[in-house]
């Protein structure tokens, strides 16, 4: 394992009067607007980060409500028509005895989204309070949220494949329900919320302000 440089005390680019490009890492004098290497926009801290985080997060939470209330799948067979919601689908899988798959769907469509709402709220509130506790843990939480959020899309893809595959005229057809749309929107909004979060703010709390 290597270390980049041997600085004795850690300072930030901002304290050194510099601004770093988030895209390519190139360091510039503070006040430079555009990165000379990758032409990306430079910003020492995103002042509107938390506003965007909250806006996307609230949008994501609102979209998650109809996603749970309305049906995800509309199944019709020779004998019956049925509609199943996210939770309904999980229950069905458990009744079939496929515990493993039920667990995957439950984790991807219930635990990850709800966990993400809570984690992003916690991160945003702790930054607003300039909390100095658990910085390493909070940074880890941020990384996990960024990494895992996309996996909620599983259920949308399941619906897509099922409704493309099961089109057997009268015997059985499966069609997507409106909840698939709101669920996909919820996932997209929370992904944007996590991306809007400026993780440098976690570490700024115990740094001297210039």
């Amino acid at each position: 394992m290597g270390i980049a440089g041997q600085s004795h005390s850690l300072i930030t680019a901002r304290d050194a009067g510099l601004v770093a490009c988030q895209q390519c890492g190139q360091v510039h004098r503070l006040g430079t607007r555009v990165c000379k290497r990758c032409e990306g926009r430079l910003q020492s801290r995103d002042g509107e980060s938390l506003q965007k985080v909250w806006a996307w997060l609230i949008a994501g939470m609102i979209a998650y409500i109809p996603a749970n209330l309305y049906p995800m799948l509309l199944t019709s067979t020779l004998v019956e028509r049925s509609e199943s919601t996210i939770i309904g689908g999980v229950v069905e899988l458990v009744e079939h005895g496929s515990w493993g798959i039920a667990a995957i769907v439950f984790i991807a469509s219930v635990m990850i989204p709800v966990g993400k709402f809570v984690a992003i709220m916690y991160l945003a509130i702790s930054v607003q309070r300039h909390s100095k506790d658990n910085q390493h843990e909070r940074h880890k939480a941020y990384e996990v949220v960024e990494f895992i959020g996309r996996w909620s899309m599983i259920d949308v893809f399941v619906v897509a494949i099922l409704s493309a595959l099961v089109q057997l005229d009268t015997i059985a057809t499966i069609n997507p329900g409106i909840a698939a749309v709101s669920f996909a929107l919820s996932v997209i909004f929370t992904m944007l919320s996590a991306q809007a979060f400026d993780s440098r703010l976690i570490w700024d709390a115990d740094r001297t302000r210039p």
């Binding site: 440089g5 600085s7 300072i11 680019a13 988030q22 890492g25 940074h139 440098r200 570490w203």
Partner: peptide, 13 residues
């Protein structure tokens, strides 16, 4: 110089 994209700590490459 390299600045960490996630916490802004400055390092020498």
């Amino acid at each position: 110089l390299v600045a960490c994209p996630q916490c802004d700590t400055l390092h020498v490459a």
